[in-house]
Design a protein around this nucleic acid. Structure first.
Lengths: 110, 110
DNA sequence: AACATTTATCGTAATATTGCAATATAATAA
DNA sequence: TTATTATATTGCAATATTACGATAAATGTT
């Protein structure tokens, strides 16, 4: 087939997978990195930073936005993008929880 | 085209994207969840837990293993899989770093 | 208005992923 | 040895992703 069977998994699982998927491309990680590096919130000069064409960057930005990882506000001709902390926090909490559970077990396996 | 241009990004970016990509599927999140839930380290009854055929599960396990997120040791006929904390920690640290940097900026954007 | 600038969308080719049936492999049991 | 059980691999169809040229849309400038 080829399509992910999302309906068989919990909302939480689909949500976490969705965020992870959005982060699952080096260009999108690079965009996040860049947004962190620059002090002022960034517009479209990500195109100059990354070795990808403008439509490709725009597409990656869209995916990050759909996943809730960044948000953008129109500012004149340009669009100002920045990291959306809420989603990142949700994602981070998921892993914090995993780490906590693992700590309790203390490697009683493999 | 269609292939990711990994060569244009840093090793770190590719590494983080690789881990995220492996986590970017609900079935693989579900596998991680399941590995956490069961006290004893798990073998192949993940097949009974998830609504996917055995070859599909095996494939997902392989991807998680390739990403370093789980490790498996042969135990008779079965294979005992469990979470590899080191990779998870690396991933978590990446986000902890992001959160720290964001804290310093205190939303001076968008 | 005409033009420049910035970002988004469309269309499309190349490639990757997802899922499974069939089959192979490996270890144990009878 | 012959089953049995557990997992992996192969091959393939359906679908998704990646990347980009061409073009559109929106705003600002002259």
């Amino acid at each position: 087939m080829g399509a992910t069977k999302t309906e068989h998994f919990t909302d939480k699982q689909n949500a976490m997978a969705g965020i992870a998927k959005a982060l699952g491309h080096p260009a999108r990680i690079a965009i996040i990195d860049y947004l962190l590096k620059v002090d002022t919130c960034i517009c479209g000069d990500i195109v100059n930073e990354l070795p990808l064409a403008q439509p490709t960057i725009s597409q990656h930005l869209k995916e990050l936005k759909n996943a809730g990882l960044i948000k953008g506000t129109i500012e004149g001709t340009a669009v100002c993008y920045c990291i959306d902390e809420k989603t990142l926090e949700k994602f981070q909490n998921y892993f914090k929880n995993i780490a906590n559970k693992l700590e309790k077990k203390k490697n009683n396996c493999c």
